[in-house]
Structures are given as structure tokens and as C-alpha cells.
Nucleic acid binder design. Structure first.
Lengths: 354, 354
DNA sequence: GACGTTCCTGACTACGTAGACACATTCTGA
DNA sequence: TCAGAATGTGTCTACGTAGTCAGGAACGTC
């Protein structure tokens, strides 16, 4: 009986394994395994003895060994975009919280914009780590991405062409309808048309909000002004706002997120255009500070918790019984529009008859 | 030669292992392992043949097996607080980015406020997953936490008593000095004293900023007004702002983060106190929208990238050679104060002699 | 040409867990 | 009373990787 690896005598003591627990409790390793997994057919007295031994040794189950044996890691990987934006951050928090209650743990990997390999590189990284499922947190369309072909279930927050997997699940809010809702709100206030400060069009969410805006305008027979595209950040909203503020035609703006709306508000203020008297502004997200801006921002909240809960429930089901028969998606929560003080009925511009 | 487990004929094919690659390349499994790990003493011709075989089979190294064998998972766990706040989110992104370049991957777990077990529960969860090191992202002081005793290195962003580990590393900005800097700026503008809207005092960062404020006041011989404590969110800042706005004595406020400062600004505006003419406000963080508020906010930026890079470099060094001899910490980056338009020299209040 | 290096490769094995299976013991019903 | 089920427990083994060690081949040196 050779001992190839000295039990790291020099360093810290070797972590106890189920074998050590078994020895102490006077049972076989397999019985310890049974106790660990709450299997039936273990005498209560034995179960208690084993649990006592585990406590005494400070036993902690070795997940690597478990994964190796079972082929399942009890871990889910999330591909993020590496931004600290409100939406992605909030969603990630919701994912972690939901996942933990299912017994899975979470690995995250960022796709930095312009990163080598983009999404497919990130996915590859996760696969090598070993994950039972993958979540694409904020699907974007990078032209250079090669199609991704997975053999584990995937949950995506939004459409993601170029992806194939044994089971592809989707969740997330209806950005198109939300964009329509925002636009209709402004049209309903009497504005002839609505301008749009869009998010980066590589993001599907941004495209969909733009689509909703476009649909609403078309349905109302309103002219479609040119789109200004930002990058979600306030500075880009400010740039767009400067253009819009200089244009007397502009009386209503739908901004694709609240952060950019902050920039728009600032630019309008600097241009001397009062909100909402001269220009109405609608944002998106309902960030915590939206209610405290000048003026408080009318916006559309997103129910991340709800979308995440639905998506993850499906993902876990799919992982644990890959039958592919998912329960029919429950209807998504209704869209809401929080009306504050950045929108008002259109007034004749002072210079209209000057 | 029995075959206990049928190779899952029913489901998808078994993933190829290094043994399969070896067979295809006509070498031993060990040689494949050598190629994988870039070890020397492999003939170039053999190396190429093995790599070709790996590509052909779509081989992907199994991290669970690797971890089981080596006792190291190449994974680092991060304990977060489960908030989408700007600071924590930004820091997490920085951690992921930095870590990836070192070859480690990232598991995250949230300590939801009031969660069972708090930090120690989160740590336990990570240990069971198997991590080589742990990062405490936003150290807070939960009274009910039992002391944590680890046997792997820990990196903490801020002090964290009640924690013991073979090596404990710290990084992060100097919140105390930052608090002092903000306060001194306001005092330097002629304000008799500075009021403080603090962050939740369970957070060490919040305590330190408060300490810095207190130090600066004491050093200047200024009276110390009562502290108002918020929860980092704009709404709590608004509440504090309503109190402060009703008090004519208040001419200068240091708010512990920008989000709360937004609430403070709003409350002051509603109270008819103009900023900066009547009241000066300094925030903390320099969130992206800070420059676009009304008025643009004077604030102290945090250099997360820098702190994270320093901390992780030390952590990885410690994991890979647990000698405990860390290179002396390089001096932290200098503190900055971004002066915008929310602070100005004190003017006599209109009612001073009324 | 014998010997010591350096280079290259393979056989064997451990890592910790859980699945398959064998077997012992107790319970149940005719 | 005895078959057969239900209940416990142990033995053996696979999972995929990399460490240890044994040795063969190629090279140089005296």
C-alpha cells in the first residue's frame, strides 16, 4: 500500500473526506454518502452518529468529486456584458437570489465589449469550468460572433439568433410593447410626434424598444423623426439632448433608459427648454433616483424579479429532466407606466405665431 | 472488464476525455495531459498530433476532475451584498475582468440583508462549491455573525473583524481620508460647519467616511452637527434632505454617496433652498449621472479598477505560493475631488440680519 | 565505446463521491 | 410457517486528470 502523495504534512492538514467520517462513525463510506444525500433506508441512529462525526471533523462535501462522478456540477453560468448599468446589475442580483434557492450556484463571466470571441468566448470559458446550464443575461448582436452550438440548456433574456442548444428558453419583458406604451402615452398627451433616443442597437432590448416606438408612431399616423442612438450612459443622452433641445419641433422624447434621460434633461435645461412645459420626456427602467430628478421622471419600470423567476424555473426544470416539455409560459406581468412630472399635455409653442 | 455505467446511450453522447484524445492520437493519456498543460519534453510532432485530435473530438478539459486531482479549483468566490448599487456593481465588474486575466473564474454569492447566517453562511456556501480564495466585496458588520475561520486566503475590501484566515489581505480606497477631503473642501469654502448624510453604519465604508468627516470638523474646530443616516438609496437621501432643508443653519452637506445626494438635492429644491447659492452639497462615487444632475454634483470618485487590481494580484500570489511574504503595498492612488457646481463659497443668508 | 545527460513517453495510481449490486435483516400477509 | 417484500448496510468500481516513477532514445564527452 504505497502512499504516492504525502498528505501535505508540511502544509495544512488534508481536508477530511467522507471516508474519514465513515471511519469515525464506524460505518462504510457509502453510508455517509447516503446520509449526505438524505437517502432513505438509513437507520435513524446511524444517521445521527454520522452527522455527529461530520460535525466533529468539520466535514465539507467535495463538490469537484461529486461533479466528476455525477457529471453534473450544480452550477449555472451567466454571461454578462461587464457593465455596471442598472438593468444588468439588478438582473444579476435577481438571478443570484433565485438560483440560490434552487440549490445551484453561480459562475459569472463578462463579455467585455470588443472582447476576443465575444459571447462565444465567454460561453466556452463557462463550459470549461463546467456548468449545467447557461444564462445569457443581456443578449447583444455582435456581428463577428460565430454561431454557438451548445449541448446544455440555455436561458436567454431576449432573442438570440445564431445560438443552438438542446433547449433554448427565453424570458424577459416585452420591450416592444413597452416602447409602444411610452410612445402612446406621449401621443395621447397631444404631441404631434415623439422623438427617440435609442440604446445601442447591438442590444436586442434597444432594438425592440425602438420597434415599439416606431409601431406606435405608425399606428397613430405620426411622422417618424430620425433616431438618435446613445450608449445607455448619461453622457450620450446629453449629446442627444443638445441636438434635440436646439430643435423647436421637438416637444416629446422617449428615451430608451433613465440614465440617458438624465443627460437629456440636463441638455434641455441648458438649452432653456423647460420640462414638461415645452418638452415632455419619458424614460425607461425606473431607476431608484428617477423619482428625485428635476423634474421627477415619467418612466416604465421593469419587473426583473418576475422575469428571472420564470426563466430560471424553466431552466432548472430543463436541466433536471431534459424532456423538453415545459409548462406553458404564464402570462407576463402587465406593463406599467409610472407617471411623474416630466410629461405634460402639449402646449402651443410661444414662438408658434411669432 | 465490466461496464457498470452504460455510456448513456439513450441520451447525448458522452463528452470525450483525455483518454479518447490519446487513443485517437496514438499516445498515452498522460501525454495528452502534458500537451494540455504546456509541459516541456513533448516532441513538437506529437504535440501537433494531439492538438489535432483534440480539435477533431471537440475535446474540452474537465475542470471537476482537475480540481479533484489537484485540490485546486482555479476558482475564486466573491461574497456580495445583493444590491445593484453603483459601487458594488462597478467593483464586481472590475473583479471579474481582473480575475479572468489571471486564469481564475468567479463564483458569486449574495448575502441578502437579514439572510440566514449572513456572511458566514455565504462563505460556507462558497467553500462547499470549492474555491481557492474568497473575496469579501463589501464588508459589513452584522452583529449576529459568528466569527469566520477559513483555511484559504481572503481578500477584503475594508476592515473585517471577526474573520480569521491563513492570510488576510486588504485593499480598497481610503474612505476616512476621502471623508476628510470632502469636509475640508466645504470648510475651505467658508462654511462654519458641514452636515453629514451618512450611509448605513453597518457598512465599514460608511463608518469610515463618517470618521473622516468627524476628524475634519474636529481639526478645524467646527461644531459637529447630528448625523443623519440613510441606506444609500435616493429616497433616504430625500428624507434627510427634507430635514436639512428645513433648517436654516444648514449651508453645507457632505452626503456619503451620490445616489443619496440626488435625493438631498431634490428635497432642497422643493424646500426652496438653492444649490449652491444657499447650500453646498458634496457627494461620493462620481456616478455617471453626477455630471448631469441639477446642479452637476461635486463628488469624490473611487478608483475601483486600481483597488481591485492591487487586491487580486496579492490574492492570487497568496493562493499560488502561500508563503505569506507579500510585496509591500504600493501607495494607493491619490484621492481626487471633482468640483462641479453643487458647491460654492458661503454667502450670508438673506435672513441673517432680518 | 562506455558513461552521463538531456529529452521524451508510458504505466500506474490517487483524488472523493455516488451508482450498481450483493447481501443481511426485519416486516407482511396468506 | 414460509415466500416475498421492504428496509438497511457494505463492497466494488468509475468518473477524468495529473503526480510519481520507470525507463527508452538521442546526444555529447572523455
Amino acid at each position: 500500500m504505497t502512499e504516492a502523495k504525502p498528505a501535505s504534512d508540511g502544509g495544512r492538514a488534508r481536508r477530511p473526506g467522507s471516508t474519514d467520517v465513515a471511519r469515525l462513525a464506524g460505518v462504510s463510506q457509502k453510508t455517509v454518502s447516503r446520509v449526505l444525500n438524505g437517502e432513505p433506508y438509513v437507520k435513524e441512529e446511524v444517521r445521527l452518529r454520522v452527522q455527529a462525526a461530520m460535525r466533529e471533523l468539520g466535514y465539507r462535501r467535495n463538490n469537484a468529486a461529486r461533479a466528476l462522478n455525477s457529471g453534473r456540477t450544480q452550477r449555472i453560468g451567466v454571461v454578462c456584458l461587464g457593465t455596471a448599468l442598472f438593468g444588468p446589475s439588478t438582473q444579476l442580483v435577481a438571478i443570484e437570489r433565485t438560483l440560490r434557492s434552487t440549490g445551484y450556484s453561480l459562475s459569472i463571466v463578462n463579455t467585455l465589449e470588443g472582447d476576443t470571441g465575444g459571447v462565444s468566448g465567454a460561453v466556452e470559458h463557462l463550459l470549461e469550468q463546467g456548468v449545467d446550464g447557461i444564462i445569457l443575461s443581456e443578449p447583444i448582436d455582435e456581428g463577428d460572433d460565430q454561431p454557438i452550438d451548445l449541448d446544455i440548456p440555455v436561458l436567454s433574456f431576449g432573442r438570440f439568433p445564431g445560438l443552438s442548444a438542446p433547449s433554448m428558453l427565453f424570458t424577459g419583458g416585452d420591450n416592444t410593447s413597452a416602447g409602444r406604451l411610452a410612445t402612446e402615452h406621449l401621443l395621447g398627451l397631444g404631441h404631434k410626434t415623439v422623438w427617440h433616443v435609442a440604446g445601442p442597437q447591438r442590444w436586442w432590448a434597444a432594438r425592440e424598444r425602438l420597434d415599439g416606438w416606431r409601431n406606435a408612431l405608425a399606428a397613430a399616423g405620426a411622422p417618424e423623426p430620425p433616431v438618435l442612438e446613445g450608449d445607455w450612459l448619461p453622457a450620450s443622452g446629453y449629446e442627444a439632448g443638445r441636438e434635440l433641445g436646439a430643435n423647436d419641433e421637438v416637444t416629446a422624447i422617449f428615451v430608451a433608459n433613465d440614465d440617458m434621460a438624465i443627460g437629456v434633461l440636463r441638455a434641455l435645461a441648458e438649452a432653456g427648454r423647460t420640462v414638461p412645459d415645452e418638452v415632455s420626456v419619458v424614460g425607461f427602467d425606473d431607476i431608484p433616483s428617477a423619482a428625485f430628478l428635476t423634474p421627477p421622471l415619467t418612466t416604465i419600470p421593469q419587473d426583473f424579479d418576475e422575469h428571472v423567476a420564470r426563466g430560471i424555473a424553466n431552466l432548472v426544470t430543463e436541466i433536471e429532466s431534459p424532456t423538453g416539455d415545459r409548462s406553458p409560459a404564464p402570462e407576463p406581468p402587465p406593463l406599467r407606466l409610472v407617471i411623474r412630472h416630466s410629461t405634460a399635455t402639449r402646449r402651443r409653442r410661444s414662438r408658434d405665431h411669432g
